[in-house]
């Protein structure tokens, strides 16, 4: 079994139907394909939720064999600035589409990285070449795209992927690769992925290198993530005022090579679910955030983590 191919590429969707978890959006995109027409589009949403996948597979369905001639992908953060817009895009946009197509598609990744001036240059280009060209802009927040461009586009908001969407795709890939994945493993993958399909598939592939029978621990280990239960243990012990017990558990985690940064990120995720009053939760979240900031500013993360745990212990005393 060749392990040299990256699965995120190997299992990149080829058709719109394969794009996971964005049914409403995919439906609309499919009808664009059926009608052979397309407005300018903005795809906004977090990383790894299928923005590029949707654009590429739509182009494939639109053009068939000639898709690579009629579709170009530019990454705005590579060579951002006004020049890339004025030259590269203009050059691609001014030539005629190839084959049986009435326009080309330009996919501009990370368009929110373009400066305002570059975006202004883009807006008129979009209008001028709309006879031969359609733009798909991808970004994390559509609000970072200037109004005049938003006004020329239909905006689609891609949502963070649900457990079901990730589970289905992971099962599909595992099946193709002859891997055994239990329900627990999928839950672990879902936890570490945080709704990001790319991260989920990478975690699966990394674990698959070790063994074809994947266990949840492997997923946590490979992604340098603590098990949620372990983090909860640290928090609960600290809130019970058991400072040294909490430190012991923390020690175990640190020995596994999990960074303080990661531990804080996970604590922050889990505090939300604790069974304590909202007022208390905010207080803890504030402390975690402060510790995270101090780790980046300070020199020794252990000191900051210990101090955080101590402050959790003290917070419990006040009640």
């Amino acid at each position: 079994m060749p392990r040299d191919e990256i699965w995120t590429e190997k299992y990149r969707p080829r058709t719109l139907n394969e794009v996971s978890g964005q049914e409403a959006i995919i439906n609309n995109l499919q009808s664009y394909v059926r009608k052979r027409n397309l407005p300018h589009l903005i795809f906004s949403g977090p990383a790894g939720v299928g923005k590029t996948a949707a654009a590429v597979s739509m182009a494939r369905e639109f053009y068939g064999d000639t898709w690579s001639e009629n579709f170009t992908e530019l990454n705005a953060s590579d060579e951002r600035g006004i020049d890339v817009v004025r030259n590269n895009i203009k050059n691609f946009a001014r030539t005629m589409p190839i084959g049986n197509a009435s326009f080309k598609i330009i996919f501009l990744d990370e368009a929110d990285a373009l400066t305002d001036a570059a975006q202004s240059a883009l807006r008129r280009t979009m209008e001028r070449y709309s006879g031969t060209c359609r733009f798909i802009l991808s970004c994390n927040y559509s609000s970072k795209i200037i109004d005049p461009i938003q006004s020329r586009c239909s905006v689609y908001r891609f949502k963070s992927l649900s457990y079901d969407a990730i589970a289905a795709r992971i099962k599909y890939i595992a099946d193709k690769e002859g891997l055994k994945v239990s329900e627990e493993v999928i839950r672990a993958i879902n936890y570490v992925s945080m709704g990001d399909m790319r991260r989920a598939v990478n975690a699966l592939q990394s674990a698959a290198v070790l063994s074809s029978e994947i266990k949840p621990e492997m997923i946590y280990e490979i992604t340098a993530t603590a098990r949620p239960e372990e983090i909860k243990e640290v928090i609960n012990k600290a809130l019970d005022g058991k400072f040294f017990d909490a430190l012991d558990t923390l020690e175990v985690l640190m020995d596994k090579g999990i960074s303080g940064d990661e531990i804080l990120a996970q604590m922050h995720r889990l505090v939300i679910n604790l069974d304590i009053p909202a007022r208390k939760k905010v207080e803890l979240m504030d402390r975690i955030g402060e510790a995270d900031y101090r780790i980046t500013e300070g020199a020794h993360e252990r000191i900051q983590l210990d101090a955080l745990i101590a402050s959790f212990c003290l917070a419990s005393d006040k009640e």
């Binding site: 922050h268 939300i272 905010v282 504030d286 900031y293």
Partner: peptide, 9 residues
């Protein structure tokens, strides 16, 4: 990464 703390708070 500090955005997550800003949002929560």
């Amino acid at each position: 990464k500090f955005w997550r703390y800003a949002s929560s708070l």
